[in-house]
Every structure is written in C-alpha cells, then in structure tokens.
Amino acid sequence: MARFGYTLMTEQSGPRELVRYAQAAEDAGFDFEVSSDHFTPWLMSQGHSPYAWTVLGAVAQVTSSVDLMTYVTCPTTRYHPAVVAQKAATLQILSEGRFVLGVGSGESLNEHVVGEGWPSVDTRQSKLVEAIEIIRELHSGDLLTYDGEYFRVDSARIWDVPDVPVEIAVAVSGDESISSFAPLAEHMVAVEPEGDLVEKWDEVHEGGSRKIGQVPICWDPDRDAAIERAHDQFRWFAGGWAVNSELPTPAGFAAASQFVRPEDVAAEIACGPDLDELAESVHPFLKAGFTDVAVVQVGDERQDQFLAEVAEPLLERMRALR
C-alpha cells in the first residue's frame, strides 16, 4: 500500500514555520515527512535555508506518529560521516524510532561551501560507499577506527545508540549506483518515476524495501498565481539532476533557468485549485512501483491554507489512485 508524505522544504520556509507545518501535516493525515538538507536555496526568491537537523529535532517533539527522513543529506563533504552517524542516532532517539536517514552523493550548491572542491560523480559515489560503511559501524555502538581511501575515523564511538536501528535510504540514478548502494541500504530514493530503477533495485537488494520519490505541486485558488509562484521559485526543477548537481550558486541556477517560461513550468508541475489534477501528479511514481511519494507544496505563502483546507481531500484523492 502506497504511503504519502509531506516535504519540509527548507529552501522556502523559515525554521519556526517548518516546525508548525510539520505538526499540521501530521494532523492532516500524511504518513511521513521528509526534510531537504541544504546550505543554500536554489534561487534567491526562495529566501531560506535553516539547518535541517535542528529543525528535525524540533519536529520530532511536536509530532508523534509520522515517520521522519532526510531527503537527502550528503555525508561526504559538508559533513563527515562520523558526525552524520551521531546526528542520526540522536534524532532516532528523539523521534522514538521514527527516523530514516536518507543519503545521497550531494550537490555542488551545498557541498562546495566548505572549500573542499567538487569531485566527479564517480568519486562522490565511492565516498558515499565509505560513508555508509562508517555510519553502519558507528551505529553498532562499538569503538571504530577506520582507514579508507577517502575517510579516516580515529577511536570513535556513538555513546547514545537508539534501541531501534537507524535505517538508511540512498538516492540512486542508474544501474551503477544501484549495484553499489542496494547491498548497503534498506531503502531506495529516486527523483524520477522510472520503473527500471525499481526493478533493478529489487534484483540487487535483499529483502523488502521502500522506494521513495518526491513530486512538486503548486496549489492555489488562482491557477495563474500558482503558475507564477512555481515559475518564480521552482523553475530550476526543469534542469534535471545531471545539471542541477553541478551548479554551485543560486546565481548559477538563475542563469541556467533564465529561459524557462511559466508555461514550461506549468507543463511539468501541476498548478492551481484542481485537486484531481494535483493528485494525478503522484500517479507516475505509483505506476513505476514506488511505495512512498512525498509531495512538495511550492512556496511558503499558501502552506497554512494548504495544510488546513487542501491536504486532507488531496490525500483522499491520492489514496484512491492506489
């Protein structure tokens, strides 16, 4: 049975607002909540980028039933994997076993800020393999010394180890990444609704797993206003992952998307008041075999109204698609 989530979009809302939205999303009936983990928004007009882990710690205290997840964090550049292991363990305790650590190979936008450069995708994925190995070892609670090609850990131990182990979901994009990561993680994350990814994952991965996707929508009583907001804040979405992962600054995203028109965005993102049209956005993921789909409501200004008035009937329509 498919599960539907709400996205805590740190690029478009402040920390206090995100905590309030998280509580409202649980009340509205979402099954899980995912948080982006960025240092910088994609576009200046989005205007926010609070620290996701602090926000999630607060969210864990105002919610009680929804699963929580990073979607996704990069444990290889801006964060050392030992630090991610500690953060994830603590969040699992605070949430009483509701947290899934979503990881990926990262974006230049967020990772270049520490001045370590931006390696090739092959190197990024090799580093992610080592990072997951380190996180797994540390979550055992044992003392760890690790000497890898990219990372070293010297006599480290996680002292507060959760009773419920932290499961890991990893972002994949093709056969190579699936071959590398499926044996290391419990769950799969992908940004495109491609059935081939699900099939390949199931071939390589042992046991059951969740396949988690994400889709943007832009609800507004006025369709034109919805399209304008989606174009203003989400036109970067048209670039695709291969391009977006390499751009280092919001100025770069603005330049790369300068010729994207409002009608181009409206063709990719369901906009306006029609709940059936918005609900249909999740259908490609369900058809491809994804078990979980998180919805992004684009923009901050309609979030309260969306959660209070729209989320419940929208969830009914999405669940009817199953």
Score class of each variant (00 low, 15 high):
residue 8 L to I: 14
residue 10 T to A: 11
residue 17 E to I: 09
residue 20 R to A: 14
residue 20 R to T: 05
residue 22 A to H: 02
residue 23 Q to R: 15
residue 24 A to E: 09
residue 25 A to Q: 03
residue 25 A to P: 02
residue 32 F to S: 05
residue 36 S to P: 01
residue 36 S to R: 10
residue 36 S to D: 01
residue 43 L to P: 03
residue 45 S to F: 08
residue 51 Y to N: 13
residue 54 T to D: 13
residue 56 L to V: 04
residue 63 T to C: 12
residue 64 S to C: 05
residue 69 M to H: 05
residue 69 M to Y: 06
residue 70 T to G: 08
residue 72 V to R: 09
residue 74 C to V: 09
residue 74 C to L: 03
residue 74 C to T: 12
residue 78 R to Y: 15
residue 79 Y to H: 15
residue 84 V to T: 15
residue 90 T to G: 14
residue 95 S to V: 12
residue 97 G to R: 13
residue 97 G to P: 07
residue 100 V to Y: 13
residue 100 V to H: 13
residue 103 V to N: 12
residue 107 E to L: 13
residue 110 N to T: 07
residue 111 E to D: 15
residue 114 V to Y: 14
residue 118 W to M: 09
residue 120 S to F: 03
residue 120 S to E: 09
residue 121 V to I: 15
residue 124 R to G: 03
residue 129 V to N: 07
residue 132 I to L: 13
residue 133 E to G: 00
residue 134 I to V: 08
residue 135 I to Y: 11
residue 137 E to G: 00
residue 141 G to A: 06
residue 146 Y to Q: 04
residue 146 Y to M: 04
residue 146 Y to W: 14
residue 152 R to C: 02
residue 152 R to Y: 01
residue 154 D to T: 11
residue 154 D to R: 15
residue 158 I to V: 15
residue 159 W to Q: 04
residue 161 V to W: 11
residue 161 V to Y: 10
residue 167 E to D: 06
residue 172 V to P: 00
residue 173 S to C: 01
residue 174 G to Q: 05
residue 175 D to N: 10
residue 176 E to Q: 08
residue 178 I to K: 08
residue 178 I to E: 09
residue 181 F to Q: 07
residue 183 P to R: 09
residue 184 L to Q: 06
residue 184 L to P: 07
residue 188 M to V: 00
residue 193 P to Y: 06
residue 194 E to C: 03
residue 196 D to L: 11
residue 200 K to V: 00
residue 202 D to L: 07
residue 203 E to L: 10
residue 205 H to G: 01
residue 208 G to A: 10
residue 209 S to E: 00
residue 211 K to N: 02
residue 213 G to S: 05
residue 224 D to H: 10
residue 225 A to S: 08
residue 225 A to E: 05
residue 226 A to N: 02
residue 226 A to K: 09
residue 227 I to T: 09
residue 229 R to H: 06
residue 234 F to G: 00
residue 235 R to T: 01
residue 239 G to W: 04
residue 240 G to A: 04
residue 241 W to I: 11
residue 243 V to P: 00
residue 244 N to A: 14
residue 245 S to M: 14
residue 247 L to H: 04
residue 247 L to I: 15
residue 251 A to N: 09
residue 252 G to H: 12
residue 255 A to N: 12
residue 256 A to I: 05
residue 260 V to G: 04
residue 260 V to D: 07
residue 265 V to Y: 08
residue 265 V to F: 08
residue 268 E to L: 14
residue 275 L to K: 10
residue 277 E to C: 03
residue 278 L to H: 08
residue 279 A to F: 05
residue 280 E to C: 00
residue 282 V to L: 10
residue 284 P to L: 05
residue 289 G to P: 03
residue 295 V to S: 06
residue 300 D to E: 14
residue 302 R to E: 09
residue 304 D to G: 01
residue 308 A to Q: 11
residue 310 V to D: 04
residue 310 V to G: 02
residue 312 E to W: 07
residue 314 L to Q: 05
residue 314 L to K: 05
residue 322 R to E: 15
